[in-house]
Amino acid sequence: MTAAVETIRDAPFTIGGRTFHSRLMVGTGKYRDNETMVRAIEASGAEIVTVAVRRVDLDRTREAGILYHLDPKKYFLLANTAGCHTAEDAVRYARLAREGGGFNEFIKLEVIGDQETLLGRSRRTGSRYSPTRTRTSSPRCGSRTRAARR
């Protein structure tokens, strides 16, 4: 029931020295529950699965992370910066994900523009970022409520 569809096989393709056998990249957001997510991802046959790096909500520490449900050895986890609203925060969180998460060297860099559709801000995502610039205010990554109020 949850077995991958064996009949569909893409020609292997290589990105950055890594070869994949499925061109389908799937996300992990907006599922009804984790069990449904795990079964859907398994059935999709996708190898690349995107996960979001977010600030831990200290008031809701019971919220379990995605790593309790997805095995980084089984899937190629592609960390993304969904939830970041500025280029600076996106780059900062991308580094945290890459160096701290330790899955792989891939990052899906994005800056969220619209909280409802989660469409990106392509200008900011593509903007030149100076690592010497610093922010003094707290980053808004993971603070969906604040963004939603704007």
Binding site: R55, V56, G65, A79
Partner: peptide
């Protein structure tokens, strides 16, 4: 960034800024 094996070696000092992130569903 402080890697996992080093977490027990780093002592926090007054005024330190600590950022804690994790991986959740999304994207």
């Amino acid at each position: 960034i402080v890697r996992r094996p080093k977490l027990g070696d780093v002592t926090v000092a007054p005024g330190d800024a600590i950022e804690l992130v994790h991986f959740v569903g999304g994207g």
